[in-house]
Each structure stands twice: as structure tokens, then as C-alpha cells.
């Protein structure tokens, strides 16, 4: 299992469209991918949109990504890249 810490950079937080993009990306991999708030208050299956939306992660929220499976390294790098690029939004930071 591999684990990375990321911060939500999008101004609107991990909103519905960003969450959908995250779930699409996570679903491309075989590994089990999970997201957890860094404070442990909530956790989600990264392949389930409702589960990710339930995190209600706003801008600045710290999350842990955990991937476990044959392609865990590739999965976690792909997801980390999404967070770092602010899900491709033009004004990721306020």
C-alpha cells in the first residue's frame, strides 16, 4: 500500500465536477483507492462519487490518498497530479 498527502487547492473545494474527474481517474486502476481527511474524521472510496462528495472537502482541506493493488504507484501518482493541478481549473488558488 502507498500513501500520499495532498491539499485541495480548488477555490470551490472538491466540488461535484472535480469529484467526478477524481472518480473517473481512480476507476481506471485496478487498485483499491481510498481518500481520508487528514484528521481522520471522514473516509471515502475514491471510485464512488457519492462517497467522495460526502467528504465535503473545501479549499485547503488536507487529505490522505491510499492505494493498494498491482498498479498502486501509477494510481496514486495520477490522483496526486489531479490535486496539484487543481483539477485543471484556471484559478485553482484564490
Amino acid at each position: 500500500m502507498v500513501e500520499r498527502r495532498v491539499t485541495v487547492k480548488n477555490r470551490l473545494g472538491l466540488h461535484a465536477r472535480a469529484a467526478a474527474q477524481l472518480v473517473r481517474t481512480a476507476s481506471e486502476f485496478q487498485s483499491i483507492v481510498r481518500l481520508e481527511r487528514a484528521d481522520g474524521s471522514a473516509a471515502a472510496d475514491a471510485k464512488s462519487i457519492l462517497s467522495v462528495l460526502m467528504l465535503a472537502a473545501c479549499c485547503g482541506t488536507e487529505l490522505r490518498i491510499m492505494a493498494d493493488g498491482v498498479d498502486e504507484e501509477r494510481a496514486i501518482s495520477a490522483l496526486e497530479a489531479l490535486f496539484q493541478t487543481g483539477f485543471g481549473e484556471s484559478d485553482p488558488q484564490v
Partner: peptide
Amino acid sequence: APKLLREHMEIRGLGI
């Protein structure tokens, strides 16, 4: 159901 999800489902291809 958690408050946010109540009455809702997600179906691949149909959305929420």
C-alpha cells in the same frame, strides 16, 4: 442514510 445522500443514488451512465 447520511443527510447529503438521502433519497439519492448514483448509477454509472445515469449519474446522480
